[in-house]
Design a protein around this nucleic acid. Structure first.
Lengths: 225, 225
DNA sequence: CAATCAATCAATCAATATGTTGAATGATTG
DNA sequence: CAATCATTCAACATATTGATTGATTGATTG
């Protein structure tokens, strides 16, 4: 009788879009791409996904209009397309968190609680830095660290952290940071640190928030970036 | 050993969620459920999806935590679960629209190019009104509407349209009109409606053409205006 | 131009997802 | 309790998706 909106194309379009986001690998890739233009091989390194597989997922993302490409010499650089992509991701993540909180009301999962126990505000960070209560841990790659970092920060890229934990003092609170809210490196670092029993927090805003607040940055040429 | 973010469970959870939204049938079902608690068979009627199939998709949604159920007699009623589900929906839809608009830029510029698929003639409008196939949408401000409007028209000023879309029926073609050819309100309205998947047309002549043709006008004192 | 590098393509297999059918369950009605 | 109604389950056929491998294309380098 009532042949309704099943046939309306918007549902198919939205579904396609959702399906494109429906694979962890593609989400991981998108996340990295959101941090800036990256070549395919860099993405394989960052994500640990096999080369051809990475390429396929990237093309899936491209077909869906979520990323765009340009060629630079022999490399193909992927960047985020225009449009409210981050909103979708944020909404999905927030919904996932909401569900997770409901399910795990009892369990104290340090990763899933993006709250006061995990994050440290810029204000609190500045105060505790003055009191020398914290150690800053920059978990970005070396080159990014060299360009600019928070004063006094130690640089241990996230993927080396597990091996180099010994370099971190036990007697202070470790505050990890990376490229900013959309970057998960510091969250990963926190998971590792907490698993190993370090007192640790995450400065979610990362370098961008710090610099935007007009606080000093150490490094070669952060201004030019 | 490289502990990258591929292993971060949030990506899997978000991906699961996205995959659940990655099928037009489930989106259609969700959409209906969002309007209120509904039983399975009602949903099959509304959506046109086969019974067992509907049930399966509903259970998929339930597993994903997007809907909840309760029993009422022999029927099982589905309702939307708590949490920011609508946000995800809205974000996805808005992204889909964004892409669609980019594609459409080649095809036509909806405001400047009168397009027969978009505009409805007075003759066709009259005919379809007689058959009760259309809903008239007056997008002018309230006071103008009060003075005079097409018979049976609903009044939703253009700038409130986005918030009040729920007031419009899905099963009829929405015909938007405003002050006449030189007024862009109805064109804006059409953009919104079509972006959200409404079957919609524009009566470009608006109230002036209607009245000039000697057709009846509802309202307090159109003559005096 | 041959060698090399980055990325994509093509082909395959395994794993999942979907739609359909008909049977089974759970609750209500007479 | 048998009959009925609403929903779910189970099983199957089919389609889609994902990972892997090796070949191929495009651009650069010497």
């Amino acid at each position: 009788m009532k042949r309704t909106d099943v046939h309306h194309p918007i549902f198919d379009e939205v579904a396609d879009l959702a399906r494109t986001l429906g694979h962890a690998h593609r989400l991981v890739l998108l996340r990295h791409i959101a941090d800036g233009e990256l070549a395919v091989e860099q993405l394989t390194q960052l994500s640990g996904i096999a080369l051809a597989n990475t390429s396929q997922h990237l093309q899936h993302l491209k077909r869906a209009g979520l990323v765009q490409t340009r060629r630079d010499g022999k490399r193909v650089l992927y960047r985020l397309a225009d449009g409210p992509i981050e909103n979708v991701f944020a909404a999905l993540r927030s919904l996932a968190n909401h569900r997770r909180e409901q399910i795990r009301e009892f369990i104290n999962d340090s990763i899933s609680q993006p709250d006061r126990l995990e994050n440290i505000s810029r204000e609190e960070l500045v105060r505790r830095m003055r009191n020398d209560e914290v150690v800053l841990l920059d978990v970005r790659p070396q080159n990014e660290f060299a360009t600019g970092h928070l004063p006094g920060a130690i640089n241990i890229p996230a993927d080396e952290l597990e091996q180099r934990l010994a370099e971190l003092p036990r007697e202070k609170v470790v505050v990890a940071y990376c490229r900013g809210v959309q970057c998960v490196l510091s969250a990963d670092a926190l998971a590792i640190l907490r698993a190993r029993g370090w007192a640790s927090r995450r400065f979610e805003g990362g370098l961008p928030e710090w610099a935007a607040a007009g606080l000093g940055v150490e490094g070669t040429n952060y201004e030019s970036g």
